[in-house]
Design a protein around this nucleic acid. Sequence first.
DNA 1: CTAGAAGTTGGAGTGCGCTCTAAGTCAACA
DNA 2: TGTTGACTTAGAGCGCACTCCAACTTCTAG
Lengths: 149, 149
Amino acid sequence: MESQLSIDEVAKRTGLTAYTLRYYERIGLIAPVGRAAGGQRRYAASDMTWIEFLLRLRTTHMPIGKMQAFAKLRGAGDSTVPDRRQMLEEHLTDVLAEIEAMRQSAEALQAKIEHYRSLEQSLASDSISDEGHANEHREPLRTRTRQTA
Amino acid sequence: MESQLSIDEVAKRTGLTAYTLRYYERIGLIAPVGRAAGGQRRYAASDMTWIEFLLRLRTTHMPIGKMQAFAKLRGAGDSTVPDRRQMLEEHLTDVLAEIEAMRQSAEALQAKIEHYRSLEQSLASDSISDEGHANEHREPLRTRTRQTA
DNA sequence: CTAGAAGTTGGAGTGCGCTCTAAGTCAACA
DNA sequence: TGTTGACTTAGAGCGCACTCCAACTTCTAG
């Protein structure tokens, strides 16, 4: 049974702090874990599995309120499996949409970086032919265009 | 010039609220926009482009503090282009890592959903052959650990 | 000339997710 | 037996990103 980890060991392994682990337990995200003499927490392997799953939910931005709802269902036994599956399916839909949104924005950022790169080229050649005031581009949006009233 | 939008029109188009638009201006994320008679804000096309870019940064979870730093560089002219590019490159690295983390977690969630699906199958057949108590299955259920007195 | 709608400002309040403090308990060691 | 130090608890505090309020000004319609 090396599956009896102290709170600090769990913190180290999960990247959570001891504060956060206690907080999660307090708010019902983690069911009361076993205790050693003196009331110190001892985490079993099954606790670790659950915490890792919680971290999956957190990574995918599930709010704590929903995690609490999920944890409550889980505590209520196998009869809630369909509900839990539905929750995860709905969440997964959101997650996939968010990943796609981030992917698109990342692409836009990449394009902006490229734009800056070429802008740096022109600015560099500007300063060769015209050293002095390098400030009449107001905004590096799409290539050029700068007029507005 | 239909590029003179009121704050409500901008709110409608960007999905931000008027409150948030003013807040962004107050904290320097958006440079002071043009004003109509009576001091009402009028957003030009270039403002819209910038706001859309800000939304890209927000979508990719750049904290407001960094956006402020970026906006400040932008306001300081073309000489800051290399700094801005570097900021975006570093941010993009983070973003790609986050996307990958989310992708992996999404996969784990998908697996969990499949697991639940098959679990629902076995629970259903249980209740055919053994109608009554459908609650002695293995899996992410805590075994023992209750309290310590 | 009002009335009402829509804006303006600075500042206060909110919700989330931790993060830390204060006071106390306990086990182990000198 | 006394001290150390890691742990415990309830509750307060914090940083972020908004979100709303109160009081005021201005524009438009009737």
